[in-house]
């Protein structure tokens, strides 16, 4: 398969870049990338690689309930990580759950990035009242831990929605709540860089030839302030996944019909005392592997892009 010319050139450029060099020389980054790829691959390919369909109620057999992992004497090789109280395969549930966790984490981060970058650009470029108001809001919000903000926004939006819409919209409400709780970090960084860029000559030149404000902000300033955003977004992805897991564990997150890793841990928590530890520990381990690998990648990216540390 021949790669299109542009893609091949991009790949060649990437091979020669500093980033690739620093990546290969950091065993932690390579290991984290492998684990992250495994988690993301497992989540994306869940419908094809999961041994069972956890949502297929007809396929559930109560006689399979509470099977321990396959390596246990009472285990069944058909269920590598055991089964839960309804005979559902834990491994399949984790693969599908990681899908939901990842979906919410990515969407919430994308939402927070979009909102934060736009508001930060406006605050930095326009200045004046818009700047003062936006940054005051960000300050107030940063006073509270973001998980608390997400909890409150989630609670308020759910309480104001009619009951019959809950199931259909719950996923979007969680994404919105987590995104809202994380935007100030992006806005502050972007505002700071915009303040620096605003007075540079190329912006002045753009103004002189009569370009509009929106055009200058989006096509001239924006590309120059995006660098640090990538690092914050990577680090934020881990936080967003954890926030979703925490909300779902508390029982106010994603709906039970679309269980995420947090939901699985909450369900498994009820069986802890009867000795079925695998129902909660394996989803927990998957969550930690996912978040830890993303965080380590983010840490590496931050150091690699920081010229002072080279």
């Amino acid at each position: 398969m021949a790669l299109p010319g542009a893609a091949a050139a991009l790949l060649a450029r990437w091979r020669e870049s500093d980033l690739w060099w620093s990546f290969r020389r950091s065993p932690v980054a390579v290991g984290a990338a492998l684990v992250a790829l495994l988690c993301i691959g497992g989540a994306l390919l869940a419908p094809w690689i999961a041994p069972h369909d956890p949502f297929d109620l007809a396929g559930l057999d109560l006689s399979n309930a509470f099977k321990p992992p396959a390596w246990d004497a009472e285990g069944d090789p058909a269920f590598p990580l055991g089964t839960d109280g309804q005979g559902r395969d834990v491994l399949s549930a984790i693969l599908y759950g990681a899908r939901i966790s990842l979906l919410v984490g990515l969407s919430a981060t994308a939402f927070a990035t979009l909102l934060g970058v736009l508001l930060g650009l406006v605050a930095g470029y326009a200045g004046g009242t818009a700047d003062a108001v936006l940054m005051r809001i960000a300050d107030v919000q940063l006073t509270f831990p973001s998980i608390l903000v997400a909890l409150l926004v989630n609670g308020v939006v759910q309480a104001s929605l009619p009951r019959e819409l809950h199931g259909a919209l719950a996923l979007y409400v969680v994404i919105f709540a987590i995104g809202i709780s994380e935007w100030p970090k992006f806005a502050r960084t972007v505002r700071g860089s915009t303040l620096v860029e605003r007075n540079k000559e190329y912006v002045l030149a753009a103004r002189v030839i009569g370009l509009g404000r929106a055009r200058i902000m989006l096509t001239h300033v924006l590309p120059n302030v995006l660098g640090p955003v990538l690092v914050i977004a990577t680090l934020n992805l881990g936080l967003a996944i954890l926030a979703e897991a925490t909300l779902s564990f508390l029982g106010v997150g994603v709906p039970p019909t679309q269980p995420s890793l947090g939901t699985l841990i909450r369900i498994g928590n009820d069986f802890l005392f009867s000795g079925e530890w695998w129902i909660t520990i394996f989803p927990g381990a998957a969550l930690v592997a996912m978040v830890l690998s993303v965080n380590l990648l983010g840490d590496w990216l931050r150091d690699a892009l920081n010229p002072k540390l080279r």
Partner: peptide, 25 residues
């Protein structure tokens, strides 16, 4: 730093309440 709060709690309960039976959960 990497373990979420609720997982720490669950692990502690598993070890000290369920397996060892030392502390209430």
């Amino acid at each position: 730093v990497s373990l979420p709060t609720f997982l720490i709690g669950i692990l502690l309960i598993l070890v000290f309440s369920v397996w060892l039976g030392w502390l209430p959960s």
